[in-house]
Design a protein around this nucleic acid. Sequence first.
DNA 1: CCTCATTTTGTGGATTTCCACAAAATTAAT
DNA 2: ATTAATTTTGTGGAAATCCACAAAATGAGG
Lengths: 412, 412
Amino acid sequence: MTYQDDPFKANFDSLEEFADRISDLLQCPITIEDANHRLIAYSAHDDYTDPARTATIISRRVPEKVINSLWKKGVIPALLSSMEPVRVETISEVGLGNRVAVSIWKNNEVIGFIWALEADRTLSKDDMELLKKAAKAAKNKVLQLYMRKNKREERVQEFFWKLLTGHITANEEIKENFAMMQIPTAPLFSVLIFRFASDITNDIEKQISYILQTTQQIHVLLYTVDRHDFILLAAPKSTLQPLHELNQFIISFGTKMKERFHVNSIKSSFGGIYETYEHIEKSYKEALTVLAIKEKFPEQTSTIYSYQQLGIYQFFDLLLEKKRQGEFINSSLLKLQAYDEKHHTNLVETFEVFFDHDSNVNETAKALNIHANTLSYRLKRIAEIGEINLHDINQKVKLYIDIKLAKYEALH
Amino acid sequence: MTYQDDPFKANFDSLEEFADRISDLLQCPITIEDANHRLIAYSAHDDYTDPARTATIISRRVPEKVINSLWKKGVIPALLSSMEPVRVETISEVGLGNRVAVSIWKNNEVIGFIWALEADRTLSKDDMELLKKAAKAAKNKVLQLYMRKNKREERVQEFFWKLLTGHITANEEIKENFAMMQIPTAPLFSVLIFRFASDITNDIEKQISYILQTTQQIHVLLYTVDRHDFILLAAPKSTLQPLHELNQFIISFGTKMKERFHVNSIKSSFGGIYETYEHIEKSYKEALTVLAIKEKFPEQTSTIYSYQQLGIYQFFDLLLEKKRQGEFINSSLLKLQAYDEKHHTNLVETFEVFFDHDSNVNETAKALNIHANTLSYRLKRIAEIGEINLHDINQKVKLYIDIKLAKYEALH
DNA sequence: CCTCATTTTGTGGATTTCCACAAAATTAAT
DNA sequence: ATTAATTTTGTGGAAATCCACAAAATGAGG
């Protein structure tokens, strides 16, 4: 089979036309994606496509499990590091048939991919060369999309910041803007923050953006960057367990950043989950509060990401203020502290850990490295010395809060 | 034995002299008390006195257990209702030997008592008559004491109000006043309030004052009346378990008011227990807070009298304010409430009662009149529907507080 | 160093909790 | 009225908690 020198020198009106042209030449279905695996174009009239391609076209993006599996097999890393086409063997778990892929480059950066599904025939060496040429030819078309998107991005960013800082409060106005910028609406949303150890570089931003675009756990409505913080407005897919979904997303995001880009130590949080847009600022502030509290209680809050789950820590700032004014003097706590001080005991810590572990004897004993009976003896002493009834949940909760508050205050 | 018509017509310099005179005439030890069983005078040179009299003289007041027992035997009620002498048989439990008592009257009011201990001899009918005359003769002397005390009282009252309202804040100044008015000092003190169903009449005030003067559970430093409220500054006897002592006092005060004067439905409270006088106003405010909270949570706080033991309710006003501003939206609670509403279930109440009962399965089941397994089933549902981890004490406490807060808000 | 009070660890048994499973009762919806 | 889902109650056994008692370890003070 022979082709003319550059079969793509003709001008194409659209990328669809371009995809059809490649498909004609190679005799196999073609899909073109951007750097974030969103579908840009695909060839029509194909007889056979595998489930992965079908799903990609339907949802206009590559299914996340497919992306995950391509990362694990090393396909995407290969495409990101070289301009050469890569062949992918069938991965039946995710419905992926044999295919060949090549990356589209602009300077030193990958801005998209072309996939050729080996439906009826296997591509030859020449075919591969052709694909490579196609990738080069696609560059400008893809770039145009990219630039157009960037311009839109800027306007959207500005809008997002206005929302975060409460500069737009009228619900009508917010809705208008959402519609104008073609941001999808959602019944529930929350503001998420990923806080990095250092300022977020363009490079990192792209990596994050990549993961966000490819994830399908949540809907990303808006995002922006503020020094260490990557801030996004996200919507859970279902309204049934929004908390759980956002939590899962945050965890998997952390894992992916670590696995794929070796970015460690990201602190994540999200604020309240709300229905109306006026609450975006509130949700953002709450997400910031979560990070602040996590800073101060790293152990207790290590598995907490949401404002919801902050629980009693939600009102610690408020209580601390009052405490500073001399309120809430807890004589039980004072007595226990005095006793600990004088006799080098650990009554306060014992109570705190016991409560932390939901009053579970075994767990607490293990956590404190003491015998269960030692714990029970200490609890008896705590009741005596602190003049506190250990069956009175009210007194216990107050003591617990006061202990935490004292710690919080110490860290001011 | 015969006496001249009025053996007491001579003028006596002091009540001590007067007591000696009676003692001479009746040939037995004499003690004179005011209406509150404080020792006013006693005859000297007596050979025999019983333990009760000794204790009275030493502590300058009749021991409380003796007063209690005299009430129970009906002696004091008899003395309060008639001018006739009353004979008291030995009450060995409290070290009281045989004796005769008579009350001292001014108009329709008892202002004191004279006690004649039948040490060597039993008083005859004539002796009793003599005692009655002595009581009449004592009237003016006792009254003088009474009046002098009243004048002092007024100044003291004014001072107390200044303390309660924070109009004297300098510790030095407070100390000076305490010394000047001969109010005993104490290392620890608290402000107590007894709130009556209606305004406190002079009559009730006297009854209260009587109980306060005769109690020896605590030291009463100052007291005053404000409409429904009887307010006092009290000091616990020991510094070890001040909370417990004040609690005990409040309970026994209520019992006595009920038993002796049939005064029901007193609401009592006390504020923080402090060391420095500047905190009197604070303690007073706290005592008022306790009463306010008891008003709103009668069941939960029925056994609570102190600000200390208010526990989490201490900061409910604070939290309520924030809640009104839209903070602390607890989606778990919202979901549970919605579920309850829709399916006519009791998940919120179940959780609340369970927590109220210190997470004790049996007690809770009993309180709710359900099977223990029903409770466990409901808890499982609560965890599911509320998206809450029942082993996470933080989430649980938050939910609990939010439930109580919602109730509190409902009662605004 | 010794002594005494306090704290820790150990043992065993009564009691309670937890959990899985199943049957009965109740409720909502067609 | 029938069905299906949810809720309540019951049973039994494993696991955990509680409690009393005792022996060992620790530590402060004379």
